[in-house]
Nucleic acid binder design. Structure first.
Lengths: 154, 154
DNA sequence: TATAACCTTGACGTAGGGGTCAGGCGTGGC
DNA sequence: GCCACGCCTGACCCCTACGTCAAGGTTATA
């Protein structure tokens, strides 16, 4: 059993809180999207609050970007790397090594940013188009109502 | 053979221009996303420029919104309806009927708009987060370079 | 200590979105 | 009229992202 006082969660609770099924949680683990959680002596999985956040994050990416889990894995892996980097940041040995890692991190996040930026732009473009269209419809509707007032139903 | 002088395209050309495979074009037709095109006497499909635009549109929706083809079908069907409405607009018979259709169209487009607007917002939020992160990295990188200047490599 | 509620792995099933033949016609240039 | 090339349908295959049992072990409560 983990020694911490942090509240550990069983798979059912995580499923409920994140809105995914237990199957999905095991599936994400299998695919490497979630690091294998601690286990109780009997083998039950024990998740942390971090894991919950992670699942939420994965779902948001899936929903928003509509990309594959493989791509999402790349992203979350990169973010994992960043956390490690951050953790090792103070003991300032091996500056060159850290620069290399930081470069990698910047590259990854830059790519993410570009993808998101591009989609965001296209998305607002589409939004504008839809708004224009709605205005057109409103105009039409008003015209139809004018017509009706001038020539009421027989 | 269609009587028009509009340039008709065979499936291979459409595939090339839209960047999808012939199989995909037939698949979209099968699923009702593309109305069945004209045929030559021998059975070859003849697409119009409109069809090309339609395919591009479908792809954009797929890419951007990450929704199913069934959902996309709803959207493009709605848009088709609008075009018809537009075409019949002048011969102003049956105003009530048209109002009903227009209402439906407005509903559909409103829903589309809401979805897109929500995603657009979440997307720019994510974009900002990534930009913040990149700035943090830049700061870190600069700090590392400072460190190096103060204590050059042994 | 028994029982309900929860969890385990394993295996098979499925919907969506196509890819990839195979076997057979259509079409256009010489 | 022949040849190369393009297109036709049908059938089966594949990957992704899970869903759905089945058979059995674990945990908490009475």
């Amino acid at each position: 059993m983990p020694d911490t006082n942090e509240a550990y969660l069983q798979i059912g609770e995580v499923a409920e809180r994140t809105g995914v099924t237990q199957r999905t949680l095991r599936f994400y683990e299998e695919k490497g999207l979630l690091r294998p959680p601690e286990r109780m002596d009997g083998g039950f999985r024990l998740y942390s609050e971090d894991d919950v956040r992670r699942v939420d994050h994965i779902r948001r990416l899936q929903d928003l970007l509509g990309i594959t889990l493989a791509d999402i894995k790349e992203m979350v892996d990169a973010e994992e790397m960043l956390l490690e980097l951050k953790a090792q940041y103070r003991p300032d040995s091996d500056v060159d090594e850290k620069k290399v890692q930081l470069r990698k991190a910047i590259d990854v996040v830059s790519r993410q940013h570009d993808i998101v930026a591009q989609k965001a732009e296209q998305m607002s473009e589409m939004k504008s188009q839809l708004e224009e269209r709605l205005q057109t419809f409103d105009r039409w509707m008003k015209e139809l109502e004018q017509l009706e007032r001038k020539a009421p139903v027989a």
